[in-house]
Design a protein around this nucleic acid. Structure first.
Lengths: 245, 245
DNA sequence: TAGCATTTGTGCGTATGTATG
DNA sequence: ACATACATACGCACAAATGCT
C-alpha cells in the first residue's frame, strides 16, 4: 500500500501499545471477521516488523481488556462487542436512544452539591458568575461496561433536590419531569476527543492510553430557558455518535 | 476544574507524552490565556509529580509541533491556542464554517479513481455491491496545519469527472454545482474517535499516539438522492465539532 | 553598574522499562 | 529464562539569559 512504517519507535508510545491500538481498530472495522480470530503471533510480528515478544505484550493488553481470549494450540479468539451508537437529535434522551442496543442499562448517582457557578458553567447557562448551581455527577453503564461519566449543572433554586429525584429514577428525563419540565431540547452540543484521564480509567474501566469522547451540551425547556449544562465523557471504543437530519 | 488527577506510569505511554497531551489540552481550553505562557517547568513538574527533565521532554515535543517557544530567563510562550470548531448542521459546508476562524485555508486533491463499491460504500449510498463509484481522496489544511483527510465516494456515471472539477476549485460544493447539484443536505453523520494511523501521521503531521476524530457522512441532493458518502479524519487536538439546534 | 531572583539550558550517574534475539 | 541495547525517568548540580532592584 505505502512505504510508511507501521509502528514508530522513540515516539513516547511503546510499540506494544501502538500495536494493541491497531489490532483493536482492525477488530472494530471487521478485518478479522472471517475467522473470528486474530492472526498468529508470528504473522503479526512479521506484519508489524517487530519481535514476537512485542506482539505478545500487545495481545496481553487486549486480553486484559476482555477483547481477546487466547486458546493454546488454537489461536486468539475475538470476543465481539459492537460499538453502541448514541443518537444526537433535537430531543436527546440517553435511555431511549440506547434501549434497543444494550440489554441491561443502569444509571448511578456518584455525587452532588450546590456550589457557585464557575466561568464556563455561568457562560453556558447564561448566568452571572458565582450564581449558585446544582452539580450532579453520574455514571452510566450498559451490559456491565461503563458507557459514560457525566457532570451536569442545573440552575438554583429551581432544581433544588433534583439529585434525589435522579437517584430514585436513574433517569434525568424523569427527574426533570418531577420538577415540571415536561419537555426539553438540545440547544448546542460540542464534541471533542482526548486521552483518558486517571479518573476515566477508574470510573469507566478503561486501559491507560484509551480515547474518550467528550461532549459539552446545553439543554433548554419548552420556553427556551436554559436548564442544564452537561460535560460527558464516553469511551471511544464502546461508543460512537450519530447526527441525523 | 480540580487537578487531583496524576499521570500513569507503566501504561505503555511515556510520561512525557501524557504530559504533553495534557498541556496541549490545557492550552486549547484557555487555561493559560492570562499570561500567554505555560507555567515554569519546576511548577509543572510539581503539579504532575514528575522530574523537571520529564516536563522538559513534554515541552520539547510541543515546541517541535510549533505550539511553544521557550525563552531563557523569561518562560515558555504559547504560539497557538485555538481549536477550530467545525459546525455540523443540516447544510454542512467545510469552507463556510471555518472561514472566519482560520486565516489561510487550502484543499488539495490527493488521489482519485473509479472502482467498484465495497460493502460499506454500497450500503451507505443505497447501491448494489460492486456498482462503479468514484473515489476521491483529499486533504484540507488551515494556517499551515493539517485539518482533515477525507475519502469520498460518488455514484457513477453521474459524477464522472468530478475529481477534475474539485481539483480546479478546491471545493466540493463548487465541484458538485458544476454537476448540477445546486444544494445538498446531510442525511446522517457518525462520529467516532481512534488513535492516529501511520497515514494520518504523514498527511496531517501528527505525532504517534495522537487522537483522530472520524466522521462518516452521507449527503443527499434536493431530491433526496444520495450523492456522496465520505469518511473524514480530523486531528482531535486541532478540531472539535459543534452540533447546533 | 552591580547584585539578586527567576527561568530555561546542560551534564552526569543511576534505576527501571521496552524491545530484540 | 537470559543477555544485550536503547529509551525513559529520576536526582542533583551548575551554567546562561532575563528582569528587577
Amino acid at each position: 500500500m505505502n512505504d510508511s512504517r507501521l509502528v514508530r519507535r522513540q515516539s513516547g508510545v511503546a510499540l506494544w501499545r501502538q500495536i494493541a491500538d491497531r489490532i483493536r481498530a482492525a477488530i472494530a472495522d471487521g478485518s478479522y471477521d472471517e475467522t473470528g480470530m486474530v492472526p498468529p503471533e508470528t504473522v503479526l510480528a512479521g506484519d508489524f516488523g517487530v519481535n514476537r515478544h512485542t506482539v505478545r505484550a500487545a495481545l496481553s493488553a487486549l486480553t486484559q481488556e476482555g477483547m481477546l481470549r487466547p486458546v493454546q494450540g488454537v489461536g486468539t479468539l475475538i470476543l465481539r462487542r459492537e460499538r453502541l451508537s448514541l443518537p444526537i437529535s433535537r430531543r436527546t434522551r440517553f435511555t431511549q436512544g440506547v434501549g434497543e442496543q444494550a440489554r441491561e442499562l443502569s444509571g448511578r448517582l456518584l455525587d452532588h452539591a450546590e456550589e457557585p457557578a464557575g466561568a464556563a458553567v455561568a457562560l453556558a447557562l447564561g448566568l452571572a458568575p458565582q450564581t449558585p448551581v446544582l452539580r450532579v455527577e453520574s455514571l452510566r453503564a450498559g451490559d456491565g461496561r461503563g458507557l459514560s461519566r457525566s457532570t451536569a449543572w442545573f440552575p438554583l433554586p429551581r432544581f433544588r433536590g433534583l439529585a434525589d429525584a435522579f437517584e430514585k429514577s436513574g433517569s434525568v428525563t424523569a427527574a426533570l419531569r418531577a420538577f415540571g419540565v415536561e419537555d426539553y431540547v438540545r440547544v448546542k452540543t460540542e464534541i471533542s476527543a482526548v486521552h483518558a484521564e486517571p479518573a476515566d480509567l477508574v470510573d469507566l474501566g478503561l486501559a491507560p492510553g484509551a480515547i474518550v469522547l467528550v461532549t459539552q451540551a446545553v439543554n433548554a425547556d419548552a420556553g427556551g430557558g436554559l436548564i442544564q449544562y452537561a460535560v460527558s465523557r464516553f469511551p471511544a471504543d464502546r461508543v460512537q455518535f450519530t447526527v441525523e437530519a
